[in-house]
Design a protein around this nucleic acid. Structure first.
Lengths: 213, 213
DNA sequence: CATGGAATGAGAGTAGCTCTCAAAATATGG
DNA sequence: CCATATTTTGAGAGCTACTCTCATTCCATG
């Protein structure tokens, strides 16, 4: 729960164990499970990979796998961007037009994304396109993101986060953004994600390119 | 499906077997499974209801249940609105602004919805809010709807259905519409769905109510 | 009424996931 | 450095959704 206790005290001279042995092991285990999973999926595909196999390769028991990840799908999906998004959004100047803020924030998120192993990012994205269970889980987490987003949005504009309009607006944004990643994967990860994102945001801001409406 | 066929003519002499006995039995079985499921869920909740119980009450074997519905979630989710939506959309005049068409079409869909048993509609919607598995399945089917929608949209405007902009626009619409149903359920099914839908479409068309942006 | 094809039931099997309990590892106080 | 408290782990039993196979029953058709 709180690792602060350990981090606070002197310790600076050696400063080696900023985290206790226990905590470090937990992180290692978590990563071992993840990498084992990615490797196995690359070798055999998602469905053919059982949790037992994952456990074996990660050198833990199946029980432990489920202790670290509630479901098999959760092993492949990271999703630590939500916090980042909200944080960055809050950091934007108050008067700034919403879509401008969104643009900045999404680019920040993409930069964070670029920090990860590209192979893994691609595999993960591909799985969200190909494997229904993974895609489902992703939708699920996107709808949580939607909730956060509408909170930020309401704050930004001083609106009620539970108002229909705010909710619809936020969720509609999420839907559009999700499609960007699908598009990217389905088109063999071609094109710059930053460009795609920009185009998507433009559409959602101003509607379809030209003509009618 | 359509129970109309059975209800319409009370066995007029000549045209008794418009459907063979086999077909009629299949329809009956399908409905028996559905009603058994709804009843059990109302009594015990979704998770507590097993497929075995459903089979027992519907007086079929568990195997048969899975022969009729690929997953437990599919038993509760109908979703035959997609076809209707696309069809109605195609029937709208060519020059009509897109959002206007959408408005008409969605209202048509709501009317069809009103034709169903309100109890069932509510239970189903409620499940999509409360039960993750059901919600997932619903997201899944919504993304299929998105695909249909972007086809219709592309046709309507003469655009490429696989273009990023079209895809994003369609999916963003879907996201917003989905949120309407969530909102409705979370607010105890209060308010007129037609109104809610109108407000949602307005937001997605013109952005948030007033001020900034 | 006989024959062919479809729907069903019975049963075995798999995999994801939960729960329990005892053993092992680690932190903490003396 | 040892004893004790706490946390983490492994082993295993158990449940349920879901798949597959095969024999049986049921309906259609000539």
């Amino acid at each position: 729960m709180n690792r602060m206790t350990a981090a606070r005290s002197p310790l600076s001279p050696a400063e080696r164990p900023r985290l206790g042995l226990r905590e470090r092991k937990k992180i290692k285990t978590r990563e071992a499970i993840r990498t084992a999973t990615y490797a196995l999926i690359r070798e055999q595909g998602y469905d053919a990979t059982t949790v037992e196999q994952i456990a074996e390769r990660a050198e833990v028991s199946p029980s432990t796998v489920f202790r670290y990840f509630p479901t098999k799908e959760d092993i492949v999906l990271t999703d630590e961007y939500d916090a980042l998004i909200v944080e960055e959004l809050r950091a934007r100047p108050a008067g700034e037009p919403w879509m401008e803020s969104m643009r900045h924030v999404m680019h920040k998120a993409l930069e964070a994304n670029a920090g990860e192993d590209p192979e893994v990012v691609r595999l993960r994205t591909q799985l969200t396109v190909q494997v229904p269970a993974v895609r489902s889980r992703m939708f699920e987490s996107m709808s949580e993101t939607g909730r956060l987003l509408r909170g930020a949005l309401a704050e930004h504009y001083g609106l009620d986060p539970d108002a229909l309009e705010v909710r619809v607006y936020a969720m509609s944004l999420i839907g559009g953004l999700m499609e960007v990643s699908m598009y990217w994967a389905e088109n063999d990860f071609g094109g710059d994600l930053h460009d795609l994102m920009d185009r998507a945001l433009t559409v959602m801001d101003r509607g379809l390119p030209r003509e009618n409406r």
